[in-house]
Amino acid sequence: MEHFLEQVLNGLQLGLMYALIALGYTMVYGVVQLINFAHGDVFMVGAFLGYFGFAVWGLPLPVAILTAMVACALLGVIIERVAYRPLRYAPKIAALISAIGVSLFLEYFSSLKFVFGPNYRVVPRPFPEVHWNIAGLSVSNIQVIVFVVVLFMLILLQILIYRTKTGMAMRTVAVDHNAARLMGVNVDTTISITFAIGSAFAALGGVLYAIAYPQIHPFMGIMPGLKAFTAAVLGGIGIIPGAVLGALIMGQVETLTSAYISSQMRDAIAFAILILVLLFRPTGLLGRTETEKV
C-alpha cells in the first residue's frame, strides 16, 4: 500500500510537470484556437535563460526566473506578430504549419554554436534539496514548489480570465473577432497579451522543469510539449481547469502503467487510454459539447 502511494506521488509530480506546460498551452488555444506547437520550444528557451540567469550570470533565483519570463513574453509576442498575425484570417491550418516552422526554427537556431549550443547542460541546484518524510512517503521541497506554482498559475489564470477586463476581452475575442472589435475590444493587443502571458508561463515552467530534472538541451521541449498538449486535449482544450485535470490523469496513467503493467508499453497504453476517453467524451473530460454550425 505504501508502495502504491509512493507511485501515486510519483505520478502526481509528473502530472504537475505536465500541468505547468499545459496551462499556457490551453490558454493560448482558448483564445486563438491555434495549436501553438512552438510552445514547447518557448519552454525550452525559458529553461535556458533561467539556467544562464542563476547558474552563469549569478543572478538570484527569483530575478533569473523573472528575467526568463519577461524575455519569453517578448519572444511570444514577436512570434505572434511575425508568424501568426499575417495568418489570422487564413485557414486555421496555415497558422498550425507556421507554428511547426517556428518550432523547428527555435530548435535548430538554439542548437547553433553561438546561441545555446547543441550540448546537454547539467543544471546545478539553485537551492539545496530537502526531503521530508511524511507517513513513510518522501516529499521533496521541489515537489512542493512545483505544486504551489501550478496552484498559483491556475488561480491566477482563472482570476485573469473571469475577473478582469483583459480577461473579458480575451473571452470575447475567443468567440468572435469581429464582434469583439465592434464592442471596442482591441483584438491585436488582446492576442498579444495572451501570447505574452502564455509564453511567460512557459518560461516559468521551463525553469522549474530544469530544476526538477536538472538537464537542458535545445530539443528538450518536443516531448514535454507534446505530452502537455495531449493532457490539455484530454481535459478539454481551451478550458483552464481541464488542463490541470488532464495533466494529472496523464501523469498517473503513465506512472502506474510503467509501475504495474509494463514500462515498455507505457506510451502505447497512455495514448490508448487517451483515445478511449476521447471516444466517450469527444471534446475532452471537461469540454462542452460544441454547438454545431449549420
Binding site: V233, D267, A268, F271, L274, I275, L279
Partner: peptide
Amino acid sequence: ILRLRSDYLGIATLGFGIIVRVGMEN
C-alpha cells in the same frame, strides 16, 4: 475515431501513431 472533430481527431491519430511506434519497437 473518425467521429472526432478537427483537433481532437488530430491528437487521437497522433496518439495512434505513437502506439504504432511502440509496437514497432517491440
